[in-house]
């Protein structure tokens, strides 16, 4: 968490990122940028999913609908903040010639998406019966 707060400063400070180490091969930086964009698309998909739950399941009870939609929106926010954080960490590691950072975020996100999908399936089935 402290590491995260320290990194937040770097999000806005290009000169500080550039001061460290040497400039890596531009292709590595572009690959890092594409990974960042892929995570951003994941975040946008989660946010779109939140809107979709809210709009396309009108028969759902309000609490469930708002809860699920807000959970998806929150996951989207986390995902996009983590995307930029991971991008900065990778960029720094490449400049210093260190190993790329590892992360348990992909595993956590997979579990969260699986749980939301299961809850959705149950809600839709129960909702159809009731």
């Amino acid at each position: 968490m402290i590491e995260f707060v320290r990194n937040v400063r770097l999000w806005f400070a290009p000169e500080e990122v550039r001061r460290e180490g040497g400039t890596p091969d531009y292709r590595f930086s572009l690959a890092n940028e594409r990974t960042f964009l892929a995570w951003l698309r994941t975040a946008l998909a989660l946010i779109g999913g939140g809107f979709a739950v809210d709009q396309f399941l009108p028969d759902l009870r309000w609490g469930w609908r708002a809860g699920l939609a807000l959970a998806l929106l929150a996951a989207g926010v986390l995902c996009s903040l983590r995307a930029v954080n991971h991008w900065v960490r990778c960029e720094r590691a490449m400049r210093r010639g260190e190993d790329l950072p590892v992360s348990r975020f992909p595993a956590v996100l997979s579990v969260v998406v699986a749980v939301v999908a299961l809850v959705m399936a149950v809600i839709v089935l129960v909702g159809w019966e009731g």
Partner: peptide
């Protein structure tokens, strides 16, 4: 091309947020 500036990457993420 040079790497994207952190400020721009952050701005793109903040638009999403």
């Amino acid at each position: 091309p040079a790497a994207i500036a952190p400020r721009r990457a952050t701005a793109a993420a903040l638009c999403t947020v």
